[in-house]
């Protein structure tokens, strides 16, 4: 057989290939050990010496051409993917990767809340956990004889007169307002301490996040608007919210904020004590006496402040029913967040 007729044969054969199987047959016919091309190569020694080189080159060219024709045909049959390397893994086996660690749910909650406020333009600040009586009480318009100053409600230090463990994050308000001029928009997360007997909802240490804004024309309506953005971002757009009048020494007017129960949607269940509402934070307009203590002109400036317990928010958000779980650091707990 001469090369030219084989070439013609190849063209017509290839045109008739319409499947992977036919292609394989085609490949075997020409390229297998006993295929047409092997026969041509085998015939080389029978040729006259001077033709051998020329013929060999032509056979080689034909072989290369054939390989690329097959590859082309394979692509046009769409078999490129299917014909990849064989699957050798049992994909049901565990995946291999460095396991990521988790941030504590308290940290995650703080981060989430902080970021809502920083996106609104607030800054984050912190302050010491050992505080002066002035910053924790006096500066916040809590009178000398107020019950919260009792040793029942505040941890005091032994060898230091007038030093205590802060019982709320509000002292940072006093520090910030003393140190900077308005406008101020700050959130303060941190640890706080109160000598409470330990049970499923009370601990002697927990976390709060405090926020406040001071400028020339901040109103109670602004407080409502800002906290609505916060509550909807954390608990979802479909919650209802209400501001109930309340009392705090450092704000006037003051309010407590409830959201419609995220479990029963307001129908009343055991989580909300059948009320349909969950209290999430306290807030109000910064009391003029607080401004006076820190040297801000209460006629010129106004401001709002709010504070909430991080554990409470996290417990509601994640459905955790015992506050002590946060501090046991059981990995089976931590790895859920």
């Amino acid at each position: 057989m001469d090369i030219r007729s084989i070439q013609a044969q190849i063209e017509s054969d290839l045109a008739a290939v319409h499947s992977q199987g036919q292609l394989e047959e085609f490949r075997l016919k020409y390229l297998s050990r006993k295929g047409a091309l092997a026969q041509l190569t085998a015939a080389i020694p029978t040729l006259p010496q001077n033709e051998r080189a020329q013929f060999g080159q032509e056979v080689n060219a034909l072989k290369n051409n054939l390989a690329s024709l097959i590859a082309e045909k394979e692509k046009s049959l769409g078999a490129g993917i299917k014909s990849g390397p064989e699957m050798t893994d049992d994909i049901g086996m565990p995946g291999i990767a460095q396991e990521l660690g988790r941030l504590h749910p308290i940290t995650q909650t703080i981060n989430e809340i902080s970021s809502i406020f920083t996106r609104m333009g607030f800054c984050i600040a912190d302050g010491p956990e050992i505080e002066t009586e002035f910053n924790n009480f006096t500066g916040l318009n809590i009178p000398l004889e107020h019950p919260s100053r009792d040793a029942f409600d505040t941890f005091y230090l032994k060898d230091y007169e007038k030093l205590l463990l802060r019982s709320h994050t509000s002292p940072v308000q006093v520090r910030a307002m003393k140190g900077r001029l308005p406008p101020l928009a700050i959130v303060v997360p941190g640890r706080v301490y109160r000598p409470d007997a330990v049970d499923a909802s009370h601990l002697f240490m927990f976390h709060q996040i405090e926020g406040f804004m001071v400028d020339t024309n901040i109103t109670f309506a602004d407080l409502k608007g800002s906290l609505e953005i916060f509550a909807k971002a954390v608990f979802g757009n479909d919650i209802k919210m209400r501001f109930r009048p309340h009392f705090f020494p450092f704000t006037e007017p003051s309010a407590e904020v409830d959201i419609s129960c995220i479990i029963c949607k307001g129908a009343g269940c055991s989580v909300c004590g059948r009320k349909g509402w969950l209290e999430i934070l306290g807030c109000g307009m910064i009391h003029p006496n607080v401004f006076k203590q820190v040297g801000i002109n209460a006629q010129k400036y106004s401001g709002f402040a709010f504070g909430m317990g991080i554990e409470r928010i996290a417990m509601l958000k994640y459905g955790i029913n015992d506050i002590r779980l946060f501090f046991e650091n059981d990995l089976r707990f931590l790895k859920q967040f």
């Binding site: 504590h104 308290i106 956990e129 301490y193 002697f204 240490m205 946060f326 501090f327 931590l334």
Partner: peptide, 8 residues
């Protein structure tokens, strides 16, 4: 994994 424990 992050832990948070009591300061006291």
């Amino acid at each position: 994994n992050e832990a948070i424990t009591y300061s006291l």
